[in-house]
Design a protein around this nucleic acid. Structure first.
Lengths: 253, 253
DNA sequence: CAGTGGTCTAGACCACATC
DNA sequence: ATGTGGTCTAGACCACTGA
């Protein structure tokens, strides 16, 4: 049993005329962002939260259900409501990797290797993607992922120095399998959304070398901007994939 | 005011142990598919439906809310609940086209042109995608879409003869801008979901010719399986895109 | 004005997980 | 046995629409 103080929570100054469930949802979000509950933590029970906000169970349920629908929390009957995370078991964590083989094996589950680090300044593409000034200092990593013992994915990842000071040494030290888990644990930044733009282009010399393909071969460019729970863009990366054995999958309704 | 007979509706044979709201949702879907309410029509009010199924308002609300969440219907306070349509206003119709320019203009809004028709049999790729027997007879269309007066998208679309008899003459006659609208209006089949697999490949001779690019240029292959509201795959298509001016956009959370 | 969906409440019973 | 979320009910009041 997890203990929760039952302090009163008033919904703070906010857009008025918002329905109560939306205000509660916003405030719960705020409390997650503030670190009151960390990724992986269990939230208080519905009834507890209902008491905190002096609202009915149904109203609180709706607020939490919407958070669950947006992937911010996971709910389990009999156990509780948990803040989503990039750690955790495969079935209860964020998953933004859409590259997989025909048989369904995901590229992200395979071995990865950081192969280069470099201090650079944001070029116009990166600056536009992140909504920052061109020339802002940052660090760029190259990472290579293999599948079926062949290199299939080269990633060029850019972090703002301002948001992630000294991330280079952290990565050197931990060689993290998941960059977003590292952000979560060391910088209290929870990536909840990614926006990707895909193009088919001819492989550059650099890409061709790392991916062991002829220069000029068609490769898939996936330009990603990762966004944290407050909606701020926090990471830019360009992925270059060889789509012989694997493909990018996307469903919409 | 729209008249609705208040016949009793029992939830038909179905997966048992499903919650009541899910069963009602399924049955409402079935009734939409059956043509009882056509795209653009107004559904009976919540209270009317609650009486039909002998369920409470809240339960019926949830069923309808979920249908609305999936885009099958649109709800308006004070007016009613309406069956969605691919022919509705741009803001309230399904949109599965993820190709757009940097400025946000969508390729699907531009001119399209059917350029070839052919009776063929499903090859292994198509058969696998649609879950049918290899060799099943069907019709294949080629369509070309332009953007900024340059050809950017070639589509090869396969219909099963069995599901869409004589669709060739319909397309010849209407030259529809939206194939899914035609399915809806002439076959009572509503596409609610598409699954896409993306690869970067070298353009074939045929693709190069139509897209006015050198053979072997990198192009984006988008293999799509469209699924109707009952979950059955109803269309297979392969889109070939030149991603110079446009890109494929995908967000996930 | 009557009818619609949108919000909110207060209760009930259940299946499930954990101790 | 206790507490969790999941379902379901039966009401209330509101804002909005359209005739």
């Amino acid at each position: 049993m997890i203990e929760h103080g039952v302090k009163e929570h008033r919904v703070p100054k906010q857009k008025i005329n918002q329905p109560l469930y939306a205000q509660i949802k916003q405030d719960l979000m705020r409390r997650v962002v503030s670190g009151e509950w960390r990724p992986g933590d269990c939230l208080p029970s519905e009834s507890n939260i209902a008491v905190q906000y002096k609202a009915s169970l149904g109203t609180v349920r709706r607020a939490i259900q919407e958070l669950a629908g947006e992937g911010l929390v996971n709910r389990y009957a009999g156990r509780g409501t948990f803040v989503n995370s990039h750690g955790g078991s495969p079935y209860e964590r964020f998953n933004f990797h859409r590259l997989s083989s025909a048989s369904g094996k995901r590229v992200a589950d395979e071995a990865s290797d950081f192969i280069a680090f470099e201090s650079i300044q944001a070029d116009s593409t990166i600056a536009t993607g992140l909504g920052i000034e061109e020339g802002e200092p940052g660090i760029q990593f190259l990472r290579l992922r293999a599948f079926a013992e062949k290199p299939v994915l080269l990633e060029r990842i850019f972090f703002r120095e301002k948001l992630f000071p000294d991330i280079a040494s952290l990565i050197r030290k931990h060689r993290p399998h998941s960059v977003y888990l590292l952000m979560e644990q060391h910088f209290h930044i929870l990536v909840t959304q990614v926006h990707e733009k895909l193009r088919s282009v001819a492989a550059s010399e650099l890409e061709a070398t790392h991916l062991k393909i002829p220069p000029g071969s068609p490769v898939l460019h996936i330009e990603r901007v990762a966004v944290d729970m407050s909606g701020a863009p926090v990471e830019w990366r360009l992925m270059t994939a060889v789509t012989q054995e694997v493909h990018y999958a996307c469903s919409s309704s």
